[in-house]
Design a protein around this nucleic acid. Structure first.
Lengths: 246, 246
DNA sequence: GAGTGGTCTAGACCACAAT
DNA sequence: TTGTGGTCTAGACCACTCG
C-alpha cells in the first residue's frame, strides 16, 4: 500500500531528478500541490517534509521551497549492508571470514552493546571485496543471542544482513556511526594489500533493533580511494555531528 | 517565541538526557502527552518527530516510542563553524590565514559552486587551532560576491561565519559534506606538524544560502585523533550515504 | 497587500502490537 | 480486544517574504 503522501513525495522526487525543477528553482506552493493531487494541505506538508529530511529541498517561512540537490540519498539498509549498497551501484560484493572467535567483551565493546564488561560476545573479522578487489576489513562483535545464527552463516556469505533475516527474522532498524582516519596495521597491510602506515578511513558503528536492543558493534576500515561518505545537512535538519576524539 | 511543539520536544529531550527515560524504555503515549501538555495530538506528533529526526527515539506503528540514545546531536551551525563547535565543548579556537589569493576556479571548484570553469574565486588557506594546538588545515574557495567581505576579515579571525554575518548579514543554511581519508602532503606536514605520509581525515564541504545559492566550497584536513564525525540514522530517517570514490 | 509556509485544532479511520 | 502510532481531513490564525 503506497500512502498518498508517499506518492506525492515520489512524484516530486522524480520530477526533481528528471530536471523538471533544477537546483535553485522553486517548487509549486502547498496549495497548488494540494489541488493538483486532490488532498488536504497536511498531506502535502507530510510529503515535502520527507524531501526536506533527505536534503533535497530547503524551506523558509514566507518563501516557496527551493531545490537544493537533484540526487536522492540512499536508504538505511544500503548504508548498513555492504552488499546491498554494492548491488545498487552495479558492483558485485564478496566476503570472506578471516577469523571467528567467542571471547569476553572488552570495555569498548561492552559499552556499545550495553553489556557488562567480560560478557561473552562473538568476534568476527571479515574481508569484503568490491568487483573482486579487497576494499574493506571489518571487525564485528555480536551479542550472544545472535551469535549462533552468525556462526551458521557461510564463510563467504555475501550479505550478513540478508542471511540473519532469512534465518531468524532479525531486522536492524537503527545505527550510530563514528568516522575517523587511522593508520593501517599488520592485518590491514596483509589483507587489503596496502603499505604499512598508509591512511585508512575508519567507520565504527553500532546497530540496534527497532526496540533499541544493540545487536552488533563493528570497526570497518576502508582502503583509501575506494569509498567516500556523504552527508547533506542544514539548519532545518542536522544528522551529522563533530565530536572530540576519544 | 517558543512554539508549543518546541516546548514539548525540549521537555522530552531534557527528561531523556536526565535519565528519566533510560535507553530502551518507552515514552508516554501521544494521548498521554497531549493531555499532560493540554494540546492536540498533532502538536505532540510534531514534537516527537523532531526527536525522531535527531535519532534520540525510535518509532513503530502499534508500539510506544522507544529511547535509543540519551545524547542529543549538535546543531548545524556548530557543524559549520569550527569556533562555535569548539566553544560549545569548552575549548578555545584560533585561526591564522596561511594564504589568500584570487584566481580562476578549477573544474572541481566550479562544479561545486555552480560557476563556469575559470570564473574568478577567492582561495584562502587557514590553519585552525584548538586550545593552541593546530588540528585542521582548511582550504576554501569563495564565490566572488562574498570575496570582498572575506578579505576584510582579520587574519586571525576566530569565526569566519560570525564575521560574515556581522559584516554583510550572510546566513548559511545548507551544507553538503563528503568525508574520506588522505595522506598528508607538504603543506600539512609543515603546518600541522605531522609526519609526511601520515593519515588525515578529510572533509570536503559546499555551503549554500537558504535560497540554495552556493557560497563556498572547502577542503578541510584534520590531524588524526583530533576529531571524530558521528551520525545516527535508521530506517525512519537516513541522512548518510556511502559513495563510490571519484 | 497578497501569497506562502509554520503552527495548531478536533475530529476520523486504519494498520499494527501487545496481551 | 484494546491501545498505540500512522494517515488524512478541513478548517483557522500567524509570521514571514516579496513585488
Amino acid at each position: 500500500m503506497t500512502r498518498r503522501h508517499q506518492q506525492i513525495a515520489n512524484d516530486l522526487r522524480e520530477a526533481i531528478s528528471q530536471g523538471r525543477y533544477p537546483v535553485g528553482t522553486a517548487l509549486p506552493s502547498e496549495s497548488e500541490l494540494a489541488t493538483a493531487h486532490d488532498v488536504a494541505r497536511g498531506t502535502v506538508r507530510q510529503a515535502v517534509s520527507t524531501l526536506l529530511a533527505e536534503g533535497l529541498i530547503g524551506s523558509r517561512q514566507g518563501a516557496r521551497r527551493v531545490v537544493l540537490s537533484t540526487t536522492p540519498s540512499q536508504s538505511f539498509s544500503q548504508l548498513r549492508s555492504f552488499s546491498e549498497w554494492a548491488h545498487a551501484h552495479g558492483h558485485s560484493a564478496g566476503g570472506a571470514v578471516v577469523s571467528s572467535t567467542r571471547r569476553p567483551a572488552d570495555p569498548e565493546e561492552a559499552a556499545q552493546l550495553l553489556l557488562p564488561v567480560g560478557a561473552e560476545i562473538l568476534h568476527v573479522a571479515r574481508l569484503r571485496t568490491l568487483d573482486g578487489e579487497p576494499v574493506l576489513l571489518e571487525r564485528t562483535a555480536y551479542v550472544d543471542w545472535i551469535a549462533e545464527a552468525v556462526e551458521r552463516l557461510a564463510d563467504d556469505c555475501e550479505s550478513v544482513t540478508q542471511g540473519l533475516y532469512d534465518d531468524v527474522g532479525l531486522v536492524l532498524a537503527h545505527g550510530e556511526h563514528r568516522i575517523d582516519a587511522v593508520t593501517a596495521g599488520t592485518l590491514e597491510t596483509r589483507e587489503l594489500g596496502v603499505r604499512r602506515g598508509s591512511p585508512l578511513l575508519r567507520l565504527r558503528r553500532t546497530t540496534t533493533t527497532a526496540e533499541g536492543h544493540p545487536v552488533e558493534t563493528a570497526d570497518d576500515r576502508y582502503k583509501p580511494g575506494s569509498v567516500v561518505f556523504a552527508i547533506r545537512n542544514s539548519t532545518q535538519s542536522n544528522p551529522l555531528a563533530r565530536k572530540p576524539a576519544g
